[in-house]
Write a protein that binds this DNA or RNA. Structure first.
Lengths: 146, 146
DNA sequence: TGCGGGTGCTAGCAAGAGTTAGCACGATGG
DNA sequence: CCATCGTGCTAACTCTTGCTAGCACCCGCA
């Protein structure tokens, strides 16, 4: 997103990653090896000089044995509560016993059911609506000059 | 990783996003406005020419009313089973936005899909590999190119 | 018919993500 | 004492993200 300059979030992410790494008794190079990321880059991430991409975070999560969601949250990419309620969509997408086309139709049916119900319920729902305002702290980047 | 040459995954993400956008009856510029992302960039994303960052995905998810995780999965950034194994049945049953009858029919469809496939394992399989050629249906066919 | 506004798209630039090479320091141990 | 290995870090580069400008097309309206 737009040259967003966050700052804090990155720091804390770096700190968190550093903690996890030393806790796992890994050197930068070892972790680099496991994640497939270069060690100088990891170093920069830990010191908050760089914002790792989602892929890198994903690898880091795997190597450090923490959940990817956790890292995303630390990175400010994901808001905490989003994690809990998500739902049928994910389960369907995750299901390897279905073809993509089947998934799609299943989700279509699902969506139509929900909208037919007036879709008020907390169950899952187009998550978010606009709950986005609060706590935007991290993601930010509104600024639209135009 | 890094310099990863994904490709396929990106395509399908673009297709999915395009679907969602037209389904929401939004133009590129409207969506751009809502997400804070430029419209040319959105265009490129939809056509699979660019891989949006997690932040952008996040904004897109918000504007299109789909869960961020869902997009991550489509983008191939997050692979579903990395978390817990989520079962479709459980998710459906837990969904308070559906009536019991709807749940039942949804699960019927689900079951028939799976058995039609000879459905191998329950919910866990390497996924990864082929998630590629799903229904690309809609995408093409708008105006004449150039 | 020509103008304004809507659509999506291309071109080209700026900044950032992530790379390889290589440095400085501290432990080893020959 | 010097060689070597391991640690984290800097420097300089490349490729990608995401931007602004601006084009080509289609429509409605005067």
């Amino acid at each position: 997103m737009a040259r967003s300059k966050v700052g804090k979030t990155v720091d804390t992410l770096g700190g968190y990653l550093h903690e996890q790494r030393v806790a796992a008794k890994l050197s930068l190079r070892q972790l680099a090896e496991q994640t497939g990321v270069s060690n100088p880059y990891l170093s920069q991430i830990e010191r908050g000089l760089r914002r790792p991409s989602a892929e890198v975070l994903q690898q880091l999560a795997k190597a450090l044995r923490v959940s990817a969601e956790t890292l995303y949250i630390h990175a400010g990419i994901l808001r905490p509560e989003d994690g809990e309620v998500r739902s049928v969509e994910l389960a369907v997408l995750a299901d390897t016993g279905l073809t993509e086309r089947q998934k799609q139709s299943l989700l279509d049916v699902y969506a139509s059911f929900r909208s037919a119900n007036g879709a008020g319920g907390p169950g899952g729902e187009p998550i978010d609506g606009d709950r986005g305002q609060q706590n935007v702290t991290t993601i930010q980047a509104r600024r639209t000059p135009r």
